[in-house]
Nucleic acid binder design. Structure first.
Lengths: 109, 109
DNA sequence: ATCGTATATCGTAAATTTACGATTAATGAT
DNA sequence: ATCATTAATCGTAAATTTACGATATACGAT
């Protein structure tokens, strides 16, 4: 952004927006789905399933790791990635809560 | 992005990512919360509650409207905004579904 | 008809994101 | 020790996002 005004927002809103932003790319949605289905897998397997270069996928993985949605641990020359279930549940609840108050038909016609 | 490779991803992933991205700014999270609490309110009321210029807030409102999270209808010189409940429920379900398969403790140690 | 208010849009600058080739680092195999 | 493989990081270009002042638009009031 032109100027960082994030300090003028509630920390809660900043952190939820941060997670939402990290979900804001189809490659990262796809990675989450792959990891959910496979339970855990090598970086290379993920690269194979995406229409992006290894460098770009690595960048997306880094972003998902940054917000804590996934974990990765190095196993020799390979890296094994998986969903961080505890964190995902936390985030699931935050989104559910954001949407929860909505219920009874919209106010606008 | 440098090149638009979005066509190489599933439409479903692209559209969920699109919504996530629209939630990826604290001002827009805040706007949703304000509209949820107030049920419906004038554009000006929202501007007053955000540390951003009128032009910038208008831009954020436009983005939320684009993905369908909110509706706005013009009433004379004013515009009245509100949550689009039906759409929000739809989106709530999509996120819930994305996170739902996750449940039983992460695979990585 | 003119004026004031409310909001959208335009133009634009700065920051950030996305993508990729090239390089580096780290390990296992020979 | 050398080589092949895997993945992270660097450097960088292009696209997008964010922000705001200025302007345009649309309406109600006078």
């Amino acid at each position: 952004m032109a100027e960082a005004k994030l300090n003028k927002f509630a920390a809660e809103d900043v952190s939820l927006a941060d997670v939402a932003k990290s979900l804001g790319h189809p490659a990262r949605i796809r990675i989450l789905k792959i990891l959910t289905d496979m339970n855990l897998c090598m970086c290379g397997d993920i690269v194979d399933q995406l229409p992006l270069s290894q460098a770009t996928v690595s960048q997306h993985l880094k972003e998902l790791k940054r917000v804590g949605l996934i974990k990765g641990n190095v196993e020799g020359p390979k890296t094994c990635y998986c969903i961080d279930n505890q964190r995902i549940e936390e985030i699931r609840d935050k989104f559910a809560n954001l949407f929860s108050k909505v219920c009874c038909g919209s106010a606008c016609k």
